[in-house]
Structure formats: structure tokens, C-alpha cells
Design a protein around this nucleic acid. Structure first.
Lengths: 110, 110
DNA sequence: ATACATACATTGTTATACTATGTATTTTGT
DNA sequence: ACAAAATACATAGTATAACAATGTATGTAT
């Protein structure tokens, strides 16, 4: 087994799957803030995501109008940027899901 | 629907899935040459792969000892580089497959 | 006081897909 | 016969995204 290659592959695989996972989570219609999403993704998928990966990702999704955010001040501590999915985000993730399912089926049939 | 984002996403998704697809195809224990793999992938997955994508990918897989190749002269035309999977390739793709299946299940459960 | 956790963010590096281009041979269309 | 397309390999330059490292600021625990 080429462990190094597998690890490099997992890192590359994230380049498509991370945004997919984030949108799927937000598609549950619950609002999440960035720091929270990191632990939620870790909890669900056991995947560790660096903050330097997630924050730019959320900014990209925002720029593409797939998500929106609002700052929420806390009684104590740093204000949080809560993200929620947009209508455009919902229709886009539906298409992505269809593509993903089809790809998965195809690969399983090889 | 954000079509541009979806297309960009598909391109990013390939960064993990292409090598996975190629190794899965070679794992059938048939030998393929590069140009042939492009049409085989198109046939199976309907994904268009540029030659400038596949040839460097095969070279990387070779450098990682996941595949090996031998030149085969043709009665007419340009000689072909036939690739086949190695033992290390087989054990690695098995691990990748396990990771992929688990990831797919996780995403479906969100 | 010091370290750790929370919560945001940016910079530089690395890996990979894609476009464009190059070389050479053979086949197909007109 | 000639041009275009297909076959079959390859490399160079560009764009994108993950990751490590670092930064800012606040709050909590030892």
C-alpha cells in the first residue's frame, strides 16, 4: 500500500468534496458559523479541516451567492458569522448531489 | 442554479476522482494505453478528459509504483504505452475504495 | 501569569486539471 | 493527390483549492 499517495489523494479529493459537504450540512436549514462547522464536519465525517481551508471556502460560497451570513454579537466573546444556504445554494446543491450520485454509481459499476 | 459554480466544482471534483477512476479501470486486470483510456473513461462516465490531463496523471501513477507500462510497437502507426496495475496499486486502490465508500455513505446520511 | 480554546482572517507552498501547443504517423474525405 | 482529422505520445503555462503557518482579539482554566 502506498500510504503517502493515499494521503495525497485524500487531500485532492477534498477539493471537490469539502464544498459539497458544507453545502449539504447547510442544506438542513440550520445556521452554522465557521468555527462550529469545523467541529461539525469532524463529528460527522471524522475529517479534520484547517481553519485556513474553511474560511476561504465560506467566502467563496458567499461570493457565488450560494450562502449568506449575518454577524451575531455574543454576550461575551468574539461575534460569530452565521451562515445559511440561499435559494440558489439549494438548487445548486441539488444538481451537485445528482452529479455525485451518478458518479458514485458509475464508479461502483466499473 | 449557479451553473458556473457547478462546472468549477466538477473540475475540482476530478482532482480526486480521476486517478481513482483510472486505477479502478486498470484494476480489472486489462491493459490500457493512454489514448485508449481517454475514450474508455468517456464511454463509461461520459467525462471528457484532456490529453494534457491524463498523460501527466499516468506518469505520476507510474512514479508512485501504482502502475507500470511497456511500449508495444504497432504494425502501423505510433507505438503504444500499455499500462497495467501493480500489486501496490491493487492494495492502494482497495484502501481508496474503502475511503470513498465510507465518505459516500457519510454524505448520504447528512 | 500562562496556556488553551474560541472565532475570525491572510500569506505562501504544493498538487492537479485545463488550455494550448508540439511532434509524428495514419486514415478519411473531397 | 491533397487537406483535414484521427491516432498517440508529450510539455509549458495558468487557475484553483487544500494546507501549514501566522496573525488578531477575547475569554477561560490552571
Amino acid at each position: 500500500m502506498n500510504v503517502e499517495y493515499k494521503n495525497k489523494w485524500i487531500s485532492q479529493l477534498k477539493k471537490g468534496t469539502l464544498s459539497f459537504i458544507v453545502l449539504n450540512i447547510l442544506n438542513k436549514d440550520k445556521e452554522y458559523y465557521g468555527y462550529d462547522l469545523i467541529s461539525e464536519i469532524k463529528r460527522i465525517t471524522d475529517i479534520d479541516i484547517a481553519e485556513g481551508t474553511l474560511y476561504p471556502l465560506l467566502i467563496r460560497l458567499k461570493n457565488e451567492n450560494l450562502v449568506e451570513h449575518n454577524w451575531v454579537e455574543q454576550q461575551s466573546g468574539i461575534p460569530r458569522k452565521y451562515y445559511k444556504i440561499t435559494k440558489e445554494g439549494k438548487s445548486t446543491i441539488a444538481q451537485m448531489k445528482a452529479y455525485w450520485d451518478n458518479l458514485n454509481q458509475t464508479i461502483n459499476s466499473i
